[in-house]
Design a protein around this nucleic acid. Structure first.
Length: 113
DNA sequence: AACTTGACGGTCA
DNA sequence: ATGACCGCCAAGT
């Protein structure tokens, strides 16, 4: 276990709390974890998310513009989009059209302590 | 051991 | 509005 594992675990913990049909951003998670500016690390955590013992809905994490920047890391080039659409998100051209409506901010939903 | 590369995001010109 | 820069720091080369 490396020191970074705790950070990664916290990221997974938050991501797993995202309700189906809702999405959040890398930056929002980083901010919630008290590491504003470390959004890239959240992205890296998602990259490793498959190693976690529990299912991590990484498809519910997009960038701040609601764009599916991580779609290439899923098995199928369209898997991420399909998963989101199955949950009610409106996706078009790699972007979530109703991003504002379904955005789930951990700071607001879980509280910033 | 040094340098590059990111599933990012805010700031400044 | 657009684009360059910079901080973040783990992994890969």
């Amino acid at each position: 276990m490396k020191s970074s594992d705790s950070f990664f675990s916290r990221v997974y913990e938050v991501v797993m709390k995202i309700p189906p049909g809702r999405v959040t951003s890398y930056g929002a998670i980083a901010k919630y974890l008290g590491a504003p500016g470390a959004a890239r690390m959240v992205g890296w955590a998602m990259n490793q998310s498959h190693t976690h013992h529990e299912f991590v809905p990484a498809h519910r994490v997009v960038n701040r513009n609601g764009m599916l920047t991580g779609k290439h890391h899923f098995e199928g080039i369209h898997l991420m989009q399909e998963l989101l659409e199955n949950e009610g998100a409106l996706v078009r051209e790699n972007r979530i059209l109703n991003f504002q409506e379904i955005f789930w901010d951990p700071v607001l939903e879980l509280g910033l302590w």
